[in-house]
């Protein structure tokens, strides 16, 4: 009897984990949704147009790391892109 209960408990816990993993959005999905919600929550005003919510690659990358250290290769790439942008 005890073995059967334990067995069912394991099945239940496994199912819960599988469902949880299947339904939790990935970080990329959350980022995409946040951008979409942001764009739907603002309106252009004067010279502050909606294009100000369009991120370039640097902004996208820096937002993604959210204050955490950026890996060296990524940092170098950002630096390179931005050095080229200096006229």
């Amino acid at each position: 009897m005890t073995k059967r209960i334990i067995g069912w408990a394991i099945v239940g816990a496994t199912t819960a984990i599988v469902i949880g993993c299947a339904t939790a959005p990935t970080d990329a999905e959350t980022t995409a949704k946040a951008t979409q919600v942001l764009k739907a929550s603002f309106k252009a005003r004067g010279q502050a147009g909606m294009d100000r919510l369009d991120q370039d690659e640097t902004q996208k990358t820096c937002s993604e790391y959210a204050g955490k250290p950026v890996p060296k290769d990524v940092a170098e790439k950002i630096e390179k892109i931005n050095l080229v942008a200096i006229k």
């Binding site: 946040a34 502050a48 369009d54 902004q59 937002s63």
Partner: peptide, 13 residues
């Protein structure tokens, strides 16, 4: 989760 992403969202002029 969305609010956290928005907190770190870099943009604007």
């Amino acid at each position: 989760r969305l609010g956290e992403k928005m907190f770190w969202f870099r943009g604007g002029s």
